[in-house]
């Protein structure tokens, strides 16, 4: 187990090293940078700024400087915000995380329940309706559903606020503050859940359908177990196993931000920050954030593998 773990950590380091090269050079070798974008600066001032930010050094040297700092937890300095990348991310990422964790929770909850029900009653009315509904939800673009929801529930019905994370000018604290945020979260979370629940529902339905045809499910029925036990204990556990891989991928997604949804609902998340950084070529921020997601991806993968070991007795890691 320990040797397995060490081996995995070694591979992780290699992967991240490769990722860092890709990420750094992709941004560093793109012509132009933050300083070039500003039309107001004189040529001398530009050179001065470039020297100040270390942009005049050879690109390979810049990579090593970036790496050295990254190892110390410093992903550089956002040129646009004039703040360290890490503290900037820290300001925005939790807002995105709040949206993502809530919608991921509901997505999985709904997808598993509907997938199981729909598989248990394959070819029934319920199954047909779910299949149609799920396809409809998957096919609608987020900007459309988002705007439609704002029109219906915020503008017309006035049930929920149209955007933002809290009421402007509100000085609430404690529970009242939390309630305010929950109200603001409702629409974006609903939209996010609606759009991602389809794929996952179909995934679980297919998995369940495959599993309930297995011999051991027949055995469970032949033992006279209640259908509920057959489905939830015998079938579902086996149907959930392959989803662990997906769970691993959810980790970076939780912090990755939802660019379009955040934009539509004016949610102060990292997705919006990311988009803005692109438009002004704030490369240190982009590099730092992308690298951060790369790290989360490898950690997510490793956790998925370790989770398999817990969930499936047949998996023995070497």
């Amino acid at each position: 187990m320990t040797s397995y773990f060490l081996k995995r950590v070694f591979y992780m380091a290699l992967t991240l090293f490769g990722a860092s090269i890709l990420i750094f050079f992709l941004y560093a070798l793109t012509p132009g940078d933050f300083v070039d974008t500003s039309p107001k600066l004189t040529a001398e001032r530009k050179l001065e700024l470039k020297a100040m930010y270390g942009l005049d050094k050879p690109v390979v040297e810049r990579y090593f400087i970036w790496m050295k700092n990254a190892f110390q937890g410093d992903f550089g300095y956002s040129l646009q915000y004039q703040q360290p990348v890490m503290s900037l991310l820290n300001d925005y990422i939790w807002n995105s995380f709040l949206l993502a964790i809530t919608s991921t929770f509901f997505t999985w909850l709904i997808a598993i329940s509907i997938g199981v029900l729909s598989a248990a009653r394959q070819h029934s009315w319920f199954d047909a309706l779910v299949t149609i509904g799920v396809f409809a939800a998957m096919s609608l673009p987020v900007f459309f559903v988002g705007l439609l929801f704002i029109k219906l529930f915020a503008v017309d019905a006035k049930l929920f606020p149209a955007g933002g994370m809290m009421t402007i000018g509100s000085k609430e604290a404690g529970f009242a503050y939390a309630w305010d945020v929950v109200q603001h979260m409702f629409l974006p979370v609903t939209v996010l859940t609606l759009l991602s629940v389809g794929t996952l529902t179909r995934y679980f339905r297919t998995n369940m359908l495959e599993v309930i045809q297995q011999d051991f499910v027949r055995t469970a029925r032949a033992k006279g177990l209640k259908e509920k036990v057959v489905l939830h204990k015998h079938a579902l556990r086996n149907a959930l196993l392959p989803a662990i891989t997906l769970l691993g991928f959810e980790l970076p997604a939780l912090f990755g931000g939802a660019i379009i949804t955040e934009k539509i609902f004016n949610w102060p998340g990292v997705g919006q920050l990311y988009m803005q950084a692109f438009s002004v070529r704030d490369y240190p921020l982009l590099m730092g954030f992308t690298m951060f997601l790369a790290i989360l991806t490898v950690i997510g993968n490793l956790s998925a593998d370790l989770l398999y070991r817990v969930a499936d007795p047949r998996v023995r890691l070497k």
Binding site: A222, K223, D312
Partner: peptide, 29 residues
Amino acid sequence: RGNELAMIFQEPMSSLNPVLTIGEQIMEP
């Protein structure tokens, strides 16, 4: 089923649930 009428199958390898212990599977009925 499993009480007055019981059944065993052709493929013992796939007839038991891979993620539950043998003991658990005997205890259930």
